[in-house]
């Protein structure tokens, strides 16, 4: 199959923040009751907190994730647009 007739694979082209979005979805951070702290996300993703925070901020700016403060800790979860973005990979 020629180059022009093959799809790009999402695995090849996902920027890190999209990979993070997918991971957050697959580990279940899809609503406020299932939101995770930076430390919990770091354990799942093996990303260091500063890098993670940068990616999460970009996801929040794009409207795909949101955060709230609970018991003096920031928690993060996907928005409905974020969930739909991830599901588009699989459908």
């Amino acid at each position: 199959m020629g180059e022009n007739h093959s799809f790009r694979s999402y695995n090849d082209e996902q920027p890190n923040q999209l990979r993070l979005l997918i991971m957050l979805h697959n580990i279940g951070a899809t609503e406020s009751s299932k939101a995770l702290t930076i430390q919990q996300i770091s354990e799942w993703t093996r990303m260091e907190a500063p890098e993670l925070q940068g990616h999460l901020q970009k996801l929040i700016t794009s409207g795909y994730a949101q955060s709230f403060r609970s018991e003096e800790t920031d928690k993060y979860h996907l928005t409905i647009d974020g969930i739909r973005k991830v599901l588009s990979l699989y459908s």
């Binding site: 997918i22 697959n26 899809t30 993703t45 969930i83």
Partner: peptide, 27 residues
């Protein structure tokens, strides 16, 4: 799905939504 009940009837269709209580990064 966020905001949806785990059971409802939609125009007579009985809809059961399963809550995914465990996740994993691998698709």
């Amino acid at each position: 799905f966020p905001g949806s009940p785990n059971y409802e009837e939609m125009d007579g269709v009985k809809v059961y939504r399963a809550s995914t209580e465990l996740g994993h990064p691998n698709f």
